[in-house]
Design a binder for these strands. Structure first.
Length: 490
RNA sequence: GGCGGCAUGGCCAAGUGGCUAAGGCAGAGGACUGCAAAUCCUUUAUCCCCGGUUCGAAUCCGGGUGCCGCCUCCA
Protein backbone atom coordinates (compact mmCIF):
# COMPACT_ATOMS: atom_id res chain seq x y z
CA UNK A 1 0.00 0.00 0.00
CA UNK A 2 1.44 3.34 -0.96
CA UNK A 3 0.35 6.83 -0.22
CA UNK A 4 -0.71 9.05 -3.08
CA UNK A 5 -0.30 12.80 -2.93
CA UNK A 6 -1.75 15.45 -5.19
CA UNK A 7 1.32 17.38 -6.25
CA UNK A 8 0.78 21.02 -7.19
CA UNK A 9 4.00 20.86 -9.20
CA UNK A 10 2.27 18.92 -11.96
CA UNK A 11 -1.36 18.97 -10.83
CA UNK A 12 -1.53 15.22 -10.55
CA UNK A 13 -1.88 12.62 -7.88
CA UNK A 14 1.42 10.84 -7.54
CA UNK A 15 2.66 7.91 -5.60
CA UNK A 16 4.69 9.17 -2.67
CA UNK A 17 8.25 7.91 -2.74
CA UNK A 18 10.25 9.26 0.19
CA UNK A 19 13.74 10.60 -0.31
CA UNK A 20 14.94 8.14 2.30
CA UNK A 21 12.97 4.96 2.89
CA UNK A 22 10.89 5.16 6.05
CA UNK A 23 11.41 8.88 6.52
CA UNK A 24 9.45 11.95 5.61
CA UNK A 25 10.91 15.44 5.63
CA UNK A 26 8.26 18.10 5.43
CA UNK A 27 8.15 21.86 5.66
CA UNK A 28 4.98 23.86 6.19
CA UNK A 29 4.75 27.63 6.09
CA UNK A 30 3.79 28.89 9.51
CA UNK A 31 2.13 32.10 10.59
CA UNK A 32 3.37 35.64 10.65
CA UNK A 33 3.01 36.32 14.31
CA UNK A 34 1.46 39.77 14.60
CA UNK A 35 -2.00 38.73 15.77
CA UNK A 36 -4.07 35.80 16.96
CA UNK A 37 -4.53 33.11 14.34
CA UNK A 38 -7.88 32.84 12.65
CA UNK A 39 -9.74 29.80 11.39
CA UNK A 40 -8.22 30.16 7.93
CA UNK A 41 -4.79 29.88 9.48
CA UNK A 42 -5.91 26.89 11.48
CA UNK A 43 -6.84 24.79 8.48
CA UNK A 44 -3.30 24.08 7.25
CA UNK A 45 -2.19 23.49 10.82
CA UNK A 46 -4.80 20.81 11.33
CA UNK A 47 -4.47 19.39 7.84
CA UNK A 48 -0.71 19.00 7.90
CA UNK A 49 -0.73 17.83 11.49
CA UNK A 50 -3.03 15.07 10.29
CA UNK A 51 -0.78 14.32 7.33
CA UNK A 52 2.07 14.00 9.73
CA UNK A 53 0.07 11.76 12.07
CA UNK A 54 -0.91 9.50 9.22
CA UNK A 55 2.68 9.13 8.07
CA UNK A 56 3.62 8.21 11.61
CA UNK A 57 0.74 5.76 11.84
CA UNK A 58 2.02 4.25 8.58
CA UNK A 59 5.41 3.70 10.13
CA UNK A 60 7.34 6.71 8.85
CA UNK A 61 9.65 8.80 10.92
CA UNK A 62 8.58 12.36 10.28
CA UNK A 63 10.78 15.40 10.46
CA UNK A 64 8.30 18.26 10.47
CA UNK A 65 9.56 21.82 10.20
CA UNK A 66 7.25 24.78 10.55
CA UNK A 67 8.56 28.31 10.70
CA UNK A 68 7.44 31.43 12.49
CA UNK A 69 7.76 34.62 10.49
CA UNK A 70 8.77 37.00 13.24
CA UNK A 71 10.26 39.71 11.04
CA UNK A 72 7.81 41.31 8.67
CA UNK A 73 6.12 44.56 7.65
CA UNK A 74 2.93 43.65 9.43
CA UNK A 75 4.71 42.98 12.66
CA UNK A 76 6.60 46.23 12.40
CA UNK A 77 3.41 48.17 11.70
CA UNK A 78 1.54 46.54 14.53
CA UNK A 79 4.41 47.16 16.90
CA UNK A 80 4.45 50.81 15.90
CA UNK A 81 0.71 51.10 16.61
CA UNK A 82 1.18 49.57 20.03
CA UNK A 83 4.46 51.31 20.66
CA UNK A 84 6.02 47.92 21.27
CA UNK A 85 9.23 46.23 20.26
CA UNK A 86 8.57 44.20 17.09
CA UNK A 87 10.40 41.09 18.22
CA UNK A 88 8.74 41.18 21.63
CA UNK A 89 5.38 41.49 19.93
CA UNK A 90 6.16 38.53 17.70
CA UNK A 91 7.25 36.55 20.72
CA UNK A 92 3.98 37.28 22.43
CA UNK A 93 1.93 36.02 19.50
CA UNK A 94 4.08 32.93 19.15
CA UNK A 95 3.01 32.06 22.67
CA UNK A 96 -0.62 32.67 21.71
CA UNK A 97 -0.10 30.50 18.66
CA UNK A 98 0.97 27.56 20.78
CA UNK A 99 -2.05 28.00 22.96
CA UNK A 100 -4.53 27.92 20.05
CA UNK A 101 -2.76 25.25 18.04
CA UNK A 102 -2.38 23.08 21.11
CA UNK A 103 -6.06 23.39 21.90
CA UNK A 104 -6.86 22.18 18.40
CA UNK A 105 -4.76 19.10 18.93
CA UNK A 106 -1.97 20.29 16.65
CA UNK A 107 1.22 18.79 17.93
CA UNK A 108 4.34 20.93 17.93
CA UNK A 109 6.51 20.44 14.86
CA UNK A 110 9.84 18.73 15.21
CA UNK A 111 11.39 22.15 14.75
CA UNK A 112 9.91 25.66 14.78
CA UNK A 113 12.64 27.91 13.38
CA UNK A 114 12.26 31.68 13.46
CA UNK A 115 13.48 34.18 10.93
CA UNK A 116 15.13 36.29 13.59
CA UNK A 117 17.37 33.38 14.51
CA UNK A 118 18.50 32.68 10.97
CA UNK A 119 19.90 35.93 9.66
CA UNK A 120 23.36 34.44 8.97
CA UNK A 121 21.88 31.63 6.89
CA UNK A 122 19.63 34.04 5.02
CA UNK A 123 22.45 36.47 4.26
CA UNK A 124 24.68 33.66 3.12
CA UNK A 125 22.00 32.38 0.79
CA UNK A 126 21.38 35.80 -0.72
CA UNK A 127 25.08 36.25 -1.31
CA UNK A 128 25.25 32.93 -3.08
CA UNK A 129 22.30 33.83 -5.29
CA UNK A 130 24.07 37.08 -6.21
CA UNK A 131 27.29 35.21 -6.88
CA UNK A 132 25.44 32.80 -9.12
CA UNK A 133 24.12 35.72 -11.13
CA UNK A 134 20.45 35.53 -10.18
CA UNK A 135 20.22 38.68 -8.11
CA UNK A 136 21.38 42.27 -8.13
CA UNK A 137 21.88 45.04 -5.62
CA UNK A 138 20.23 48.45 -5.87
CA UNK A 139 20.74 51.07 -3.15
CA UNK A 140 21.02 48.50 -0.39
CA UNK A 141 18.11 46.42 -1.66
CA UNK A 142 18.71 43.05 -3.25
CA UNK A 143 16.36 41.78 -5.93
CA UNK A 144 15.95 38.38 -7.44
CA UNK A 145 16.05 38.48 -11.22
CA UNK A 146 13.16 36.33 -12.36
CA UNK A 147 14.06 36.44 -16.03
CA UNK A 148 17.40 34.79 -15.25
CA UNK A 149 15.71 31.79 -13.69
CA UNK A 150 14.33 29.65 -16.48
CA UNK A 151 12.10 27.59 -14.22
CA UNK A 152 10.17 30.59 -12.94
CA UNK A 153 6.46 29.80 -12.97
CA UNK A 154 6.71 26.03 -12.89
CA UNK A 155 4.76 25.63 -9.68
CA UNK A 156 1.98 28.09 -10.38
CA UNK A 157 1.80 27.24 -14.08
CA UNK A 158 2.31 30.79 -15.22
CA UNK A 159 4.53 32.39 -17.78
CA UNK A 160 6.30 35.65 -17.12
CA UNK A 161 4.73 37.17 -20.23
CA UNK A 162 1.23 36.38 -19.00
CA UNK A 163 1.86 37.80 -15.60
CA UNK A 164 3.10 41.09 -16.97
CA UNK A 165 -0.31 41.78 -18.41
CA UNK A 166 -1.89 41.66 -14.99
CA UNK A 167 0.96 43.07 -13.00
CA UNK A 168 -0.25 45.98 -10.98
CA UNK A 169 0.84 49.54 -10.75
CA UNK A 170 3.73 51.23 -9.03
CA UNK A 171 6.47 49.06 -10.44
CA UNK A 172 9.72 50.05 -8.87
CA UNK A 173 11.72 51.61 -11.69
CA UNK A 174 14.94 50.31 -10.23
CA UNK A 175 13.90 46.73 -10.88
CA UNK A 176 15.13 45.00 -14.02
CA UNK A 177 11.83 43.23 -14.44
CA UNK A 178 8.49 44.09 -12.87
CA UNK A 179 8.21 40.66 -11.29
CA UNK A 180 11.60 40.80 -9.61
CA UNK A 181 11.16 40.50 -5.86
CA UNK A 182 13.15 41.56 -2.84
CA UNK A 183 15.58 39.22 -1.15
CA UNK A 184 16.82 41.97 1.12
CA UNK A 185 15.26 45.28 2.01
CA UNK A 186 17.41 48.22 3.03
CA UNK A 187 16.53 49.51 6.48
CA UNK A 188 14.20 52.43 6.88
CA UNK A 189 14.51 54.63 9.94
CA UNK A 190 13.05 53.12 13.09
CA UNK A 191 12.82 49.59 11.71
CA UNK A 192 14.63 46.62 13.12
CA UNK A 193 17.65 45.90 10.97
CA UNK A 194 20.65 43.67 10.69
CA UNK A 195 24.06 44.20 9.19
CA UNK A 196 24.74 42.70 5.81
CA UNK A 197 27.19 43.03 2.94
CA UNK A 198 24.66 45.41 1.34
CA UNK A 199 24.20 47.57 4.39
CA UNK A 200 21.70 47.48 7.20
CA UNK A 201 18.37 45.91 6.39
CA UNK A 202 16.13 42.90 6.76
CA UNK A 203 15.16 39.85 4.72
CA UNK A 204 12.37 39.84 2.16
CA UNK A 205 9.39 37.65 2.85
CA UNK A 206 10.24 34.63 0.71
CA UNK A 207 13.89 34.04 1.42
CA UNK A 208 13.38 32.88 5.00
CA UNK A 209 11.57 29.71 4.00
CA UNK A 210 14.15 28.79 1.40
CA UNK A 211 16.94 29.33 3.87
CA UNK A 212 15.37 27.53 6.80
CA UNK A 213 14.05 24.61 4.76
CA UNK A 214 17.50 24.26 3.31
CA UNK A 215 19.18 24.35 6.65
CA UNK A 216 16.96 21.79 8.35
CA UNK A 217 15.91 19.59 5.44
CA UNK A 218 18.34 20.22 2.60
CA UNK A 219 17.58 20.34 -1.10
CA UNK A 220 15.17 17.79 -2.53
CA UNK A 221 13.22 17.23 0.66
CA UNK A 222 9.90 15.42 0.52
CA UNK A 223 6.90 17.63 1.11
CA UNK A 224 6.34 21.34 1.21
CA UNK A 225 2.92 22.52 2.29
CA UNK A 226 0.81 25.59 2.83
CA UNK A 227 -2.38 27.33 1.72
CA UNK A 228 -3.38 27.74 -1.91
CA UNK A 229 -2.71 31.43 -1.77
CA UNK A 230 0.95 30.77 -1.15
CA UNK A 231 1.47 29.04 -4.49
CA UNK A 232 2.12 32.39 -6.06
CA UNK A 233 4.20 34.25 -5.38
CA UNK A 234 5.53 32.80 -2.13
CA UNK A 235 6.25 29.21 -3.06
CA UNK A 236 7.18 30.05 -6.62
CA UNK A 237 9.78 32.41 -5.22
CA UNK A 238 11.00 29.92 -2.67
CA UNK A 239 11.74 27.51 -5.48
CA UNK A 240 13.50 30.17 -7.54
CA UNK A 241 15.69 31.21 -4.62
CA UNK A 242 16.61 27.75 -3.45
CA UNK A 243 17.34 26.39 -6.89
CA UNK A 244 19.20 29.49 -8.00
CA UNK A 245 21.32 29.17 -4.89
CA UNK A 246 22.01 25.47 -5.19
CA UNK A 247 22.44 25.60 -8.94
CA UNK A 248 20.11 22.67 -9.32
CA UNK A 249 16.75 21.34 -8.19
CA UNK A 250 14.42 20.28 -7.00
CA UNK A 251 13.94 22.32 -3.87
CA UNK A 252 11.04 20.18 -2.68
CA UNK A 253 9.57 17.13 -4.41
CA UNK A 254 5.89 17.19 -3.46
CA UNK A 255 3.93 20.41 -3.00
CA UNK A 256 0.67 20.22 -1.09
CA UNK A 257 -1.80 23.08 -0.82
CA UNK A 258 -4.93 23.27 1.25
CA UNK A 259 -8.09 25.06 0.13
CA UNK A 260 -9.51 28.11 1.83
CA UNK A 261 -12.01 28.54 4.55
CA UNK A 262 -14.73 30.77 3.18
CA UNK A 263 -17.44 32.85 4.78
CA UNK A 264 -20.54 33.23 2.65
CA UNK A 265 -18.50 31.59 -0.11
CA UNK A 266 -15.83 34.28 0.10
CA UNK A 267 -12.31 33.64 1.23
CA UNK A 268 -11.78 34.29 4.91
CA UNK A 269 -8.89 36.67 5.19
CA UNK A 270 -7.49 39.42 7.29
CA UNK A 271 -7.69 41.93 4.47
CA UNK A 272 -11.40 41.27 3.87
CA UNK A 273 -12.00 41.48 7.60
CA UNK A 274 -14.36 38.50 7.50
CA UNK A 275 -12.30 36.34 9.79
CA UNK A 276 -12.98 34.59 13.05
CA UNK A 277 -10.13 33.95 15.39
CA UNK A 278 -9.60 30.49 16.74
CA UNK A 279 -9.87 32.02 20.17
CA UNK A 280 -13.41 33.31 19.67
CA UNK A 281 -14.59 30.10 18.02
CA UNK A 282 -13.20 28.01 20.85
CA UNK A 283 -15.15 30.13 23.30
CA UNK A 284 -18.30 28.64 21.76
CA UNK A 285 -17.25 25.24 20.51
CA UNK A 286 -15.19 22.35 21.69
CA UNK A 287 -11.86 22.33 19.84
CA UNK A 288 -12.52 18.75 18.85
CA UNK A 289 -15.63 19.89 16.99
CA UNK A 290 -13.58 22.46 15.10
CA UNK A 291 -10.99 19.89 14.20
CA UNK A 292 -13.65 17.40 13.12
CA UNK A 293 -15.35 20.05 11.02
CA UNK A 294 -12.13 20.86 9.19
CA UNK A 295 -11.35 17.21 8.55
CA UNK A 296 -14.86 16.45 7.36
CA UNK A 297 -13.99 17.95 3.97
CA UNK A 298 -11.10 17.01 1.74
CA UNK A 299 -8.20 19.35 2.39
CA UNK A 300 -8.02 20.73 -1.14
CA UNK A 301 -11.70 21.71 -1.29
CA UNK A 302 -12.98 25.04 -0.08
CA UNK A 303 -14.74 24.85 3.25
CA UNK A 304 -17.47 27.29 4.10
CA UNK A 305 -17.78 28.43 7.66
CA UNK A 306 -20.78 29.32 9.73
CA UNK A 307 -22.24 28.30 13.05
CA UNK A 308 -24.80 25.93 11.59
CA UNK A 309 -21.98 23.88 10.07
CA UNK A 310 -20.29 23.63 13.42
CA UNK A 311 -23.57 22.66 15.05
CA UNK A 312 -24.01 19.91 12.50
CA UNK A 313 -20.52 18.60 13.04
CA UNK A 314 -20.98 18.78 16.76
CA UNK A 315 -23.89 16.38 16.46
CA UNK A 316 -22.01 14.11 14.10
CA UNK A 317 -19.10 13.93 16.46
CA UNK A 318 -21.44 13.23 19.36
CA UNK A 319 -22.56 10.11 17.53
CA UNK A 320 -19.00 8.80 17.54
CA UNK A 321 -18.56 9.73 21.18
CA UNK A 322 -21.79 7.91 22.02
CA UNK A 323 -20.57 4.81 20.25
CA UNK A 324 -17.40 4.83 22.30
CA UNK A 325 -19.36 5.51 25.48
CA UNK A 326 -21.56 2.57 24.62
CA UNK A 327 -18.56 0.28 24.27
CA UNK A 328 -17.08 1.46 27.55
CA UNK A 329 -20.39 0.95 29.31
CA UNK A 330 -20.78 -2.55 27.89
CA UNK A 331 -17.31 -3.42 29.09
CA UNK A 332 -18.01 -2.21 32.60
CA UNK A 333 -21.63 -3.05 33.27
CA UNK A 334 -21.72 -6.60 32.00
CA UNK A 335 -20.14 -9.56 33.76
CA UNK A 336 -18.00 -11.85 31.68
CA UNK A 337 -16.90 -15.43 32.33
CA UNK A 338 -18.72 -18.72 32.50
CA UNK A 339 -21.66 -18.31 30.16
CA UNK A 340 -24.23 -20.39 28.39
CA UNK A 341 -24.82 -17.63 25.87
CA UNK A 342 -23.21 -17.86 22.47
CA UNK A 343 -22.65 -14.73 20.43
CA UNK A 344 -20.27 -16.28 17.93
CA UNK A 345 -22.22 -15.12 14.93
CA UNK A 346 -22.32 -11.52 16.10
CA UNK A 347 -18.67 -11.60 17.07
CA UNK A 348 -17.67 -12.79 13.61
CA UNK A 349 -19.76 -10.04 12.09
CA UNK A 350 -18.27 -7.34 14.30
CA UNK A 351 -14.80 -8.64 13.64
CA UNK A 352 -15.40 -8.29 9.92
CA UNK A 353 -16.68 -4.77 10.46
CA UNK A 354 -13.59 -3.97 12.46
CA UNK A 355 -11.25 -5.15 9.74
CA UNK A 356 -13.24 -3.40 7.06
CA UNK A 357 -13.19 -0.15 8.95
CA UNK A 358 -9.46 -0.19 9.26
CA UNK A 359 -8.99 -1.18 5.64
CA UNK A 360 -11.35 1.56 4.46
CA UNK A 361 -9.67 4.08 6.70
CA UNK A 362 -6.25 3.33 5.28
CA UNK A 363 -7.43 3.30 1.71
CA UNK A 364 -9.04 6.69 2.25
CA UNK A 365 -5.97 8.20 3.83
CA UNK A 366 -3.64 6.62 1.31
CA UNK A 367 -5.57 8.40 -1.40
CA UNK A 368 -4.28 11.91 -0.86
CA UNK A 369 -5.35 12.03 2.78
CA UNK A 370 -9.06 11.76 2.17
CA UNK A 371 -10.11 12.47 5.74
CA UNK A 372 -13.77 12.91 4.82
CA UNK A 373 -13.87 9.33 3.60
CA UNK A 374 -11.76 8.11 6.50
CA UNK A 375 -14.27 9.56 8.93
CA UNK A 376 -17.03 7.60 7.21
CA UNK A 377 -15.23 4.37 8.11
CA UNK A 378 -15.44 5.39 11.77
CA UNK A 379 -19.17 5.88 11.42
CA UNK A 380 -19.49 2.46 9.82
CA UNK A 381 -17.61 0.94 12.71
CA UNK A 382 -19.81 2.83 15.16
CA UNK A 383 -22.94 1.41 13.58
CA UNK A 384 -21.61 -2.15 13.64
CA UNK A 385 -20.62 -1.74 17.24
CA UNK A 386 -23.95 -0.29 18.32
CA UNK A 387 -25.73 -3.12 16.55
CA UNK A 388 -23.57 -5.53 18.51
CA UNK A 389 -24.56 -3.76 21.69
CA UNK A 390 -28.19 -4.23 20.77
CA UNK A 391 -27.60 -7.95 20.32
CA UNK A 392 -25.96 -8.01 23.74
CA UNK A 393 -29.00 -6.36 25.25
CA UNK A 394 -31.02 -9.43 24.42
CA UNK A 395 -28.94 -11.28 26.98
CA UNK A 396 -29.15 -8.54 29.57
CA UNK A 397 -28.53 -9.74 33.11
CA UNK A 398 -26.69 -12.89 32.06
CA UNK A 399 -22.94 -13.28 32.13
CA UNK A 400 -21.42 -13.29 28.65
CA UNK A 401 -18.41 -15.15 27.33
CA UNK A 402 -14.95 -13.62 27.53
CA UNK A 403 -14.84 -13.55 23.74
CA UNK A 404 -17.44 -10.76 23.86
CA UNK A 405 -15.29 -8.69 26.14
CA UNK A 406 -12.29 -9.29 23.90
CA UNK A 407 -13.97 -8.12 20.73
CA UNK A 408 -15.28 -5.02 22.50
CA UNK A 409 -11.81 -4.20 23.71
CA UNK A 410 -10.46 -4.66 20.22
CA UNK A 411 -13.09 -2.33 18.83
CA UNK A 412 -12.37 0.30 21.44
CA UNK A 413 -8.61 0.12 20.91
CA UNK A 414 -8.87 0.23 17.13
CA UNK A 415 -11.34 3.05 17.25
CA UNK A 416 -9.05 5.12 19.43
CA UNK A 417 -6.04 4.24 17.31
CA UNK A 418 -7.69 5.38 14.08
CA UNK A 419 -9.18 8.49 15.57
CA UNK A 420 -5.81 9.41 17.01
CA UNK A 421 -4.60 9.75 13.43
CA UNK A 422 -7.25 12.41 12.98
CA UNK A 423 -6.40 13.93 16.34
CA UNK A 424 -9.79 13.09 17.81
CA UNK A 425 -10.82 11.48 21.10
CA UNK A 426 -7.45 12.16 22.61
CA UNK A 427 -8.60 13.74 25.82
CA UNK A 428 -11.04 11.04 26.88
CA UNK A 429 -8.49 9.17 28.94
CA UNK A 430 -7.17 12.10 30.90
CA UNK A 431 -10.38 13.03 32.71
CA UNK A 432 -12.10 11.33 35.64
CA UNK A 433 -8.92 10.63 37.51
CA UNK A 434 -8.74 13.32 40.13
CA UNK A 435 -10.31 13.28 43.55
CA UNK A 436 -13.36 15.39 42.87
CA UNK A 437 -14.13 13.32 39.79
CA UNK A 438 -14.10 10.21 41.95
CA UNK A 439 -16.33 11.90 44.46
CA UNK A 440 -18.74 12.85 41.67
CA UNK A 441 -18.72 9.24 40.58
CA UNK A 442 -19.82 8.09 44.03
CA UNK A 443 -22.37 10.82 44.35
CA UNK A 444 -23.97 9.92 41.06
CA UNK A 445 -24.08 6.26 42.04
CA UNK A 446 -25.99 7.30 45.14
CA UNK A 447 -28.47 9.45 43.25
CA UNK A 448 -29.04 6.71 40.69
CA UNK A 449 -29.67 4.22 43.46
CA UNK A 450 -32.28 6.45 45.03
CA UNK A 451 -33.97 6.94 41.70
CA UNK A 452 -33.94 3.22 40.96
CA UNK A 453 -35.70 2.72 44.24
CA UNK A 454 -38.43 5.08 43.11
CA UNK A 455 -38.65 3.37 39.75
CA UNK A 456 -39.04 -0.03 41.32
CA UNK A 457 -42.08 1.35 43.14
CA UNK A 458 -43.29 2.79 39.83
CA UNK A 459 -42.99 6.23 41.35
CA UNK A 460 -42.39 7.79 37.94
CA UNK A 461 -42.92 11.32 39.18
CA UNK A 462 -39.94 11.14 41.50
CA UNK A 463 -37.81 9.27 38.99
CA UNK A 464 -38.53 11.78 36.23
CA UNK A 465 -38.03 14.73 38.55
CA UNK A 466 -34.56 13.50 39.42
CA UNK A 467 -33.72 12.95 35.79
CA UNK A 468 -35.05 16.36 34.77
CA UNK A 469 -33.29 18.21 37.56
CA UNK A 470 -30.04 16.51 36.68
CA UNK A 471 -30.55 17.46 33.07
CA UNK A 472 -30.94 21.08 34.14
CA UNK A 473 -27.53 21.03 35.79
CA UNK A 474 -25.97 19.38 32.77
CA UNK A 475 -26.09 15.68 33.55
CA UNK A 476 -27.90 13.25 31.30
CA UNK A 477 -29.26 9.99 32.64
CA UNK A 478 -29.85 7.06 30.34
CA UNK A 479 -31.72 3.90 31.35
CA UNK A 480 -30.20 1.22 29.18
CA UNK A 481 -30.90 -2.53 29.13
CA UNK A 482 -27.52 -2.97 30.86
CA UNK A 483 -28.34 -0.50 33.60
CA UNK A 484 -28.42 3.21 34.22
CA UNK A 485 -25.58 5.43 33.15
CA UNK A 486 -24.88 9.10 33.15
CA UNK A 487 -22.80 11.62 31.29
CA UNK A 488 -22.21 15.32 31.19
CA UNK A 489 -24.06 17.12 28.45
CA UNK A 490 -21.96 19.22 26.09
C1' G B 1 -6.94 40.25 -19.69
C1' G B 2 -3.89 35.57 -18.14
C1' C B 3 -4.02 31.04 -15.18
C1' G B 4 -6.67 27.64 -12.04
C1' G B 5 -10.73 25.47 -9.26
C1' C B 6 -15.82 24.23 -8.15
C1' A B 7 -21.33 22.89 -9.34
C1' U B 8 -23.76 15.54 -6.27
C1' G B 9 -30.60 14.42 -2.19
C1' G B 10 -33.59 19.80 2.47
C1' C B 11 -28.21 20.85 4.49
C1' C B 12 -22.91 19.14 4.78
C1' A B 13 -19.97 15.81 1.91
C1' A B 14 -17.22 11.24 -0.61
C1' G B 15 -17.05 9.23 -5.32
C1' U B 16 -13.46 10.97 -11.57
C1' G B 17 -15.90 5.19 -16.95
C1' G B 18 -19.39 -0.24 -15.22
C1' C B 19 -22.46 -4.29 -9.10
C1' U B 20 -28.05 -1.25 -5.65
C1' A B 21 -24.15 7.05 -6.27
C1' A B 22 -20.33 6.35 0.64
C1' G B 23 -20.91 8.71 5.34
C1' G B 24 -23.05 12.57 8.59
C1' C B 25 -27.00 16.23 9.92
C1' A B 26 -32.19 17.22 9.43
C1' G B 27 -37.19 14.86 8.19
C1' A B 28 -40.75 10.54 8.06
C1' G B 29 -42.22 5.57 9.75
C1' G B 30 -41.20 1.38 12.93
C1' A B 31 -38.58 -1.32 17.17
C1' C B 32 -36.78 -0.88 22.24
C1' U B 33 -38.39 2.16 26.92
C1' G B 34 -43.11 3.29 32.34
C1' C B 35 -41.84 7.89 29.63
C1' A B 36 -37.31 9.67 27.81
C1' A B 37 -32.26 9.29 26.20
C1' A B 38 -29.01 6.28 23.58
C1' U B 39 -29.39 2.64 19.88
C1' C B 40 -31.18 -0.49 15.82
C1' C B 41 -34.25 -1.21 11.24
C1' U B 42 -36.81 1.12 7.02
C1' U B 43 -37.23 5.52 4.02
C1' U B 44 -35.64 10.46 0.82
C1' A B 45 -30.71 11.74 -5.77
C1' U B 46 -32.14 10.30 -13.39
C1' C B 47 -25.21 13.86 -9.87
C1' C B 48 -26.21 22.67 -13.07
C1' C B 49 -27.87 22.88 -18.64
C1' C B 50 -27.00 21.41 -23.97
C1' G B 51 -24.36 18.42 -27.31
C1' G B 52 -20.58 14.55 -28.23
C1' U B 53 -17.30 10.02 -27.41
C1' U B 54 -18.51 4.98 -25.55
C1' C B 55 -21.75 -1.30 -25.30
C1' G B 56 -21.83 1.85 -20.83
C1' A B 57 -20.55 8.64 -17.92
C1' A B 58 -21.91 12.11 -12.04
C1' U B 59 -17.08 10.54 -13.79
C1' C B 60 -13.98 11.70 -20.50
C1' C B 61 -14.45 15.76 -24.65
C1' G B 62 -16.83 20.48 -26.61
C1' G B 63 -20.13 24.52 -25.62
C1' G B 64 -23.17 27.26 -22.09
C1' U B 65 -24.71 29.14 -17.20
C1' G B 66 -23.48 30.22 -12.17
C1' C B 67 -19.94 30.67 -8.17
C1' C B 68 -14.94 31.09 -6.31
C1' G B 69 -9.59 31.71 -6.13
C1' C B 70 -4.57 33.39 -7.77
C1' C B 71 -2.03 37.15 -10.81
C1' U B 72 -0.93 42.65 -4.67
C1' C B 73 -0.13 41.23 1.84
C1' C B 74 -2.86 36.78 2.76
C1' A B 75 -3.09 29.83 5.23
Amino acid sequence: MTIKIYNTLNNRKEEFIPRQPGKVDMYVCGPTTYDLIHLGNARPLIVFDTVRRYFEYSGFEVNYVQNFTDIDDKIINRAREEDADPLALAERYIKEYYRDAGALGVRPATKHPRVSEHLPEIIEMIQKIIDNGYAYVVDGDVYFSVSKFSGYGKLSGRKLEDMMAGARIDVDERKNHPMDFALWKAAKPGEPSWNSPWGKGRPGWHIECSAMANKYLGMGFDIHGGGFDLIFPHHENEIAQAEACAGCGPFARYWMHNGFITVNEEKMSKSLGNFFTVREILAKYDPEVVRFYILSTHYRSPLDFDDTKLEMNKKSLARLHNALDNVEALLHSVSYGQSDVSMEREIVQLHKGLEKAERDFREAMDDDFNTALAVASLFDLARETNAFGKAMAEHAGKPLPESVREILEQVRDKFLKLSEVLGLFERREAVNKDESAQLLEKLMALIIEVRQEARSKKDWATADAIRNKLSEIGIILEDTPQGVRWKKSK
